[in-house]
Amino acid sequence: MERGTQQDAAARFDPLRPRLIRVAYRMLGSVADAEDVVQEAFIRWMGVDRAAIREPEAFLRRTVTRLCLDQLKSARVRRETYVGPWLPEPLVGDDEEEEDVTLPLMLALERLSPLERAAFLLHDVFGLAFEEVARTIDRDAAACRQLAARARTHVRDARPRFQVEKQRGLEIAGAFFTASRSGDMTSLGALLAQDVSLHSDGGGKRPATVRPAIGFGQVIQLHKALTVNFRKHGSTLLRTCLINGLPGFVTREADGEVQTTALDIQDGRVTAIYIMRNPDKLRHLH
């Protein structure tokens, strides 16, 4: 009888797992950490008196959010000693749902306090009423409204105003790959905005820029230098796709490791380039 009850509990949990991972990933910016948090929530779910829980999804969302809040405290300490720019782990695919929290917005969320981040995500992204947000993060509804409002002010500029149409974005991503790897700086320059920036996360594990390259001149100069390496060692395009809601591509580089490049595109020009090279953040892609 007990085994049947446990199986029923697992069967109720499994359909919710993808949604819970989405919540945890947006809180933490790490696929592995999100999966660990959701697994811990599963263990707690299996150990509670489930007959007393009227809304399993709400209970599990609260559990995941609170575990994430605890984890964010230690994550902030780790980020202070991180080598070079920090980028969230890339989510690769063509899932339209990922477009609600694009990579620039994920970076903007990093500047929020953990509670502001939770209130904003739960209300503005996942559509929960402030009363439910309040129960989730143990604050009253009025405080949650203030937290979300403060968060909105900080992230307003990071939300895309004129999002590029998906197919057009993927075409630009393909053209960017071809121009950057062939050394065609004229074609590459035609794709870039004047205020373009480049952010590369190697995490101290693989070569990457220690500081972002800012402006058209710096980004072109960096690609000129990289062209020598691409011509000598090669760079293989595996696919163009959405990466955290942005058009981009996945490549296999000369060292055998995969790499993701995501492009923020406004008015048909690339305004930001986000390159993930840290192998620890690319394991889930293998």
Score class of each variant (00 low, 15 high):
V133E: 12
Q167F: 14
A193I: 12
S187L: 12
F176W: 01
F177Q: 04
H154K: 13
P160A: 00
G202E: 15
G169T: 13
V196D: 05
Q146K: 06
A143H: 02
D201I: 14
A142H: 13
D201L: 10
L198K: 04
V133L: 15
A108D: 15
R206H: 11
L107Q: 08
Q167A: 14
D195V: 05
G217H: 04
L122H: 00
I172N: 07
A179C: 00
D124L: 12
E96P: 05
L198V: 08
E131F: 14
A142T: 04
D124I: 08
L109C: 04
E171P: 08
A175Y: 13
I137A: 06
G127H: 09
R211I: 05
I172P: 07
S197R: 11
L115Q: 01
A148R: 05
M185E: 12
D140K: 11
T102L: 05
L122I: 05
P114I: 15
V196S: 09
G189M: 03
A175S: 06
D124K: 13
L121E: 04
C144Q: 15
A148C: 10
V219K: 06
F130D: 10
G202D: 08
R117S: 14
R168M: 02
D124P: 07
D100Y: 14
F120C: 13
L128S: 00
R135I: 07
L107N: 00
A108P: 04
K205E: 07
T209W: 14
D195C: 05
F162L: 11
P212D: 03
G203W: 11
L191W: 10
D184Y: 02
P104S: 06
E171V: 05
A134L: 06
A119Q: 03
P207T: 11
A143K: 10
A173D: 10
A119N: 09
H199A: 08
R135W: 08
F162G: 09
G203F: 14
K205L: 11
R117P: 12
I172Q: 03
I214Q: 15
E99C: 15
D201V: 11
G204L: 10
V155H: 06
T209I: 13
Q221A: 00
R211W: 14
L115N: 00
V219Q: 08
L128G: 10
A148M: 06
L115D: 01
D195K: 08
C144Y: 03
I214E: 12
L103E: 13
D201A: 12
L105R: 08
P160Q: 04
A142C: 00
Q167P: 08
A119T: 11
M185T: 02
D195I: 04
R168H: 10
M106D: 14
E110I: 02
R139Q: 02
Q194W: 07
A142W: 06
L105F: 09
A179G: 01
C144E: 05
E116W: 01
M106L: 15
S197P: 04
R161T: 01
P114H: 03
T186E: 15
L112P: 07
A208S: 08
A175F: 13
T136H: 14
P212R: 07
A108K: 08
L103S: 02
D201Q: 13
G183S: 06
F176L: 04
F176G: 00
R211S: 01
V101R: 01
H199W: 01
E165V: 10
R159C: 13
F216L: 15
K205Q: 15
R139W: 02
G217S: 00
Q218E: 15
G204Q: 07
G169N: 09
E165M: 08
G204R: 11
V133A: 15
G215L: 03
F176K: 04
S180E: 12
